[in-house]
Amino acid sequence: MLLIPCPWCGERVEAEFRYGGEAHLKRPDNHLLCSDETWAEYLFMRRNPKGWHRERWMHLAGCKRWFYVVRHTQTHRIAAAYKVGEAWPALPA
């Protein structure tokens, strides 16, 4: 079971959270005019790395706020959690 450090509430068990997938996806500015390829890239294509992953979590059973976590997809180790709008912490080596 993951222990997730909510930046607002502190460490809580995974069951209190909702996962939101890859973080920092940027919706195309001109989404009505952009190409199908650009739209597909935004909507469907994912990095899905075997390694460090920036991802979104929401503390459903707590503050109900979305935030970001840096987690390793093979070891499940969590290196950092940060609020929306904060500077991105660097990925561990």
């Binding site: 997938g21 890859e22 597909a40 890239e41 469907f44 294509m45 994912r46 990095r47 899905n48 790395p49 075997k50 997809t73």
Partner: peptide, 18 residues
């Protein structure tokens, strides 16, 4: 489950999450 890793080696992305 490792398709994204191989696709990355070949230089493209997939709509897949593991």
């Amino acid at each position: 489950g490792h398709s994204s890793v191989l696709a990355a080696l070949a230089g493209f992305r997939l709509p897949i999450e593991s």
